[in-house]
Design a protein around this nucleic acid. Sequence first.
DNA 1: TACCCCATTGTTATCGATATCCAGGGGAAG
DNA 2: CTTCCCCTGGATATCGATAACAATGGGGTA
Lengths: 329, 329
Amino acid sequence: MADVARVAGVSPMTVSRAFKRDASVSDATRSAILEAADALGYVFDSTASNLRSQRTDFVAVTIPSINNANFADTVRGLSEGLKERGLQILLGYTDYDVREEERLVEQLLRRRPEAIVVTGGHHTPRTRRLLENSGIPVVETWDLPVAPVGHVVGFSNAAAVHAMVDHFVSLAITRIAFIGGDADRDTRGTDRRAGFISAMRAHGLDAGRLIAAGTPPISMKEGADAMGRLLDTMPDTQAVICVSDLSAFGALTECQRRGVSVPGQIAVAGFGNYEIAGICVPSLTTINPFPDEIGKRTASLILDVLDGKQTGSAAIAIKPVLIRRQSSP
Amino acid sequence: MADVARVAGVSPMTVSRAFKRDASVSDATRSAILEAADALGYVFDSTASNLRSQRTDFVAVTIPSINNANFADTVRGLSEGLKERGLQILLGYTDYDVREEERLVEQLLRRRPEAIVVTGGHHTPRTRRLLENSGIPVVETWDLPVAPVGHVVGFSNAAAVHAMVDHFVSLAITRIAFIGGDADRDTRGTDRRAGFISAMRAHGLDAGRLIAAGTPPISMKEGADAMGRLLDTMPDTQAVICVSDLSAFGALTECQRRGVSVPGQIAVAGFGNYEIAGICVPSLTTINPFPDEIGKRTASLILDVLDGKQTGSAAIAIKPVLIRRQSSP
DNA sequence: TACCCCATTGTTATCGATATCCAGGGGAAG
DNA sequence: CTTCCCCTGGATATCGATAACAATGGGGTA
């Protein structure tokens, strides 16, 4: 920067100002500086800026997996909402593991982000403490935690699946199964299964038709395997709710391979409203949790908090919508 | 850090060492320091460390879209390979736009990453200059550029599709169509279409059965629409190669909706070996470009370059594999 | 004409960890 | 017991941009 200043015939401070958006530098000076910078191949050094200004323009985000269209949509919504303010996302993957989340959160906080967004409301005690003491806005998403750390933008996974059970029961379908993962790693999956069980019990129905399909998050293949087992062991099942659209699609293909008619012989429902749910044949009944909306609302919440417009903890509830399609009557 | 030093009864320098992996600090001292740090709620400040040490432990990565399982797999492979060395990925999305890539690359370079990985070998002149002058290892992926900026880990998209055409021709299928995007934004898509055209011409066949399906990257829905148009306008087509598995699956569903038998009346092929290609009914013939392998090889290449083990520019060619499945004879 | 105000630019100290050089002490070898 | 070396820990200057405050100058207003 000193070199640029020399070439442009100004002080380093003025060069610094020329690289800011709103700084008071005359247009002539700024363009001379930018020209000099370009000629010298100078690239602004954020590391020094970050230290002195105590601002990084990072927003830290943890998601369970990069390879999941739902979370990707949330990140995209977030990213777009934050971009206009020059905020950049610092992304990390927890691999559906709260221990890994703890390591990740600590790593991310070391980078001094302006805010941190985590997926879910289940954390290790230490993660919770780190977040509470971070001194920056914390947003939990994709959940409605009972005791949130800070802000919340999400929905109740259990309630959403509860609504799906209600839907089937209202169609006089009572022998309903649930396909999910075999462990509690995926806390959203666990919440969804819990919602299934409580809903079935609330209707006085058998909540025992549970198929564990593998380590969460379960894949299309695992969904297909689970459907195979369901058809083998409980052939009188009338409907199956899957923990996600991906496993639901896998289940659907297994029916196709076996010549089992959907929804004639068995209805299939998913979760997430992935693109595939709307286009496969038959199309999948599912629940839309509005992942992009979660991202957008989180972004604008963060901006409000940073601007001081939002004081106190916000709890923004997104209302999932049940989408009836061809895979259910 | 000074506070931690005071509480632990050591100098700040020793605290600094205690937070490094290999630094020479006795176990007793280190644990006392970490205990003091924990009690005080101290979180290491990377911004200062980055400035002084001139190391950020960032590896910058640009991908066209976060919501794409292929690129996500590459990022995952990268991420895992780099994690063991404490390198963290700084991810950005170009939205399939070279202008956006330029902005992004400049933003990322300001953060002083240790290396930068870009998707594709097509860049604006300024992007190219920025990369060349960055002074850090540059890796272009998912392509085999004629004039690479630095290192390369990828494959020829054109050659891969060429092989698919050869495959169909060897089965005496000659009326072949291509479904892709309607613009040149997605350079890999454009390369694939070019590979289709050159292959058809090499066989002396009509390369005119091209369906433009929308703005790249094209979705399942757009693939379905394109298949509809193809069936309407060129019903004698024997096979269709789609720019990706997602559009291929959409095309497949359109056939199902119309009662067109696949592969009986028309064969369908995709690209990418997404999970869906292996499980849908009928399963999709496709090309596996080994996205995770690209990520892993890129990671180990970067580590070698940073260690000085790799001098000069590496060009690692990944060999895509054609996978025959039920959607083709 | 005199004065004030604001826009623009400059000066100095500083953000917090660490590279670098240095010192003390304990153990091994002779 | 001496010598040397290695291990551990300390002192100081520094990475590069910028917050905070100061200064300059030109235009508008009384």
